[in-house]
Every structure is written in C-alpha cells, then in structure tokens.
Design a binder for these strands. Sequence first.
DNA 1: ATCCTACATACGCCATTGACGTATATTAAA
DNA 2: TTTAATATACGTCAATGGCGTATGTAGGAT
Lengths: 97, 97
Amino acid sequence: MKDSLFAELLESVEQMDEIVKGEREPAKERFVAASRLKLIRKKVNLSQPKFAMLIGVELSTLRNWEQGRREPTGPAKVLIKAIERDPENVIKACISS
Amino acid sequence: MKDSLFAELLESVEQMDEIVKGEREPAKERFVAASRLKLIRKKVNLSQPKFAMLIGVELSTLRNWEQGRREPTGPAKVLIKAIERDPENVIKACISS
DNA sequence: ATCCTACATACGCCATTGACGTATATTAAA
DNA sequence: TTTAATATACGTCAATGGCGTATGTAGGAT
C-alpha cells in the first residue's frame, strides 16, 4: 500500500472522527438500514444462504435481519454497506479465504 | 459491475460453499484469529479508537477482542480479514459514509 | 522533573444479539 | 403434481457488544 494513498485514507478516518463528534455534517448515512439489506443482497444477486456465508453469519441470522426481527451489529452494517458501495473489490476481499 | 466479473465472483461464492461443506480444501484460514487482530490494526496504522470507529464497534469491544476477552462475531472477522487483504479498497468502501 | 494528553490494559455488569431449532409458505423447475 | 430451493416466521438461550470504571504507559510541552 502506497504511503500517499494511505495518507488519504487516514485523513478520511480523521474526518470520520469529526463526523462522529458532531463537528461536521455526515455526507450520507453511515450504516445500512435493515430494511435495505434485501435490496443490497439482490443487487449482488446472491441467495440468502450464499450471502449469509459471504458475510460470515448463520442463515437464520441474516433472515432475522431481513425480517426486521434483529438489528445487524456494527461490523455487519459496515461490511454490508461496503459491499453495496464496492461489490467487486469488497466481495473479492471477503472471499479469498 | 460488469457481468463477466460478477460471474467470477459468483463462482467463488459457490466454491466457498463447497469448502464449508467439506467438499473442498480451504486455501487458507477463512477468519482472523483474535490474536492477529492487533497486528492487522498496526499494519494499517490506526489507533484502537480509529480502528474501532472504522469497523463500527465500540472502543471497549475492540479492546475486548485484542485482549482475548471476547471473540469477534462472524461479520467482524470477515471485515477485518477483508481489510487485511485489501486495505485500500475495503477501507475506502467502509469510510465513504 | 512534572503535567498533560493520547493510547492501551483490564475487568464487572447486563440488554441485545447470533446461533440453533422447528414449522410453514412460496417459487420454479422436472 | 412432485420436488427442491428459497424464503417467512418465531421460540429459546448462551455469548457478545455496549457501557462503565480503574489503572498503566509513552510522548510532548511547560
């Protein structure tokens, strides 16, 4: 990872910091709404079983999310959102076990 | 997302399926060992507070992981592993709120 | 040397989740 | 219409995540 690029990322994390602290307006929502999860899964065209495996949860857990019975935890939301934003790269990084 | 590339990804997910079912040998470990988490965080050069924010957990939760008091849940492991494998793209996808 | 701030270790407590199970419904293909 | 794959729906419970507090450490600044 080149240093210049890394510096940019670091800057973004700093900005994220300020957003959380309320010193800056967030550009958009940071997390997936549980209700949008199904749409995201459809977007990458995976069945519940495969998507669940991809993101490392039990099938039943994914179902709980899609049916609104449970709320995904933080990392799950971040991961799903990341998949939504850049499916190619993120899914690749998830898969290559 | 181009269809050809997507087809490749889908194939990979199918393979992942077979791995989980024991029909195929996994290339490597699928998940992060909790003990490796700190090394991964150092690799991307982020403090505990910033890394916790990045992956969407409370600082105390990340600390529990690094100190071996708790085990990250599935999506957290996948996300961390993805960050390890492709920090640039995955962190970018996580950040862009 | 002392203060100060950021960063990290360590752990108690409890509401919420994830995992596991079962039963039913829908869809598509054979 | 039978079959298999996919999805809805929900009960139960151990384990986690979030929250708090206390302590330790490394680095500058004064």
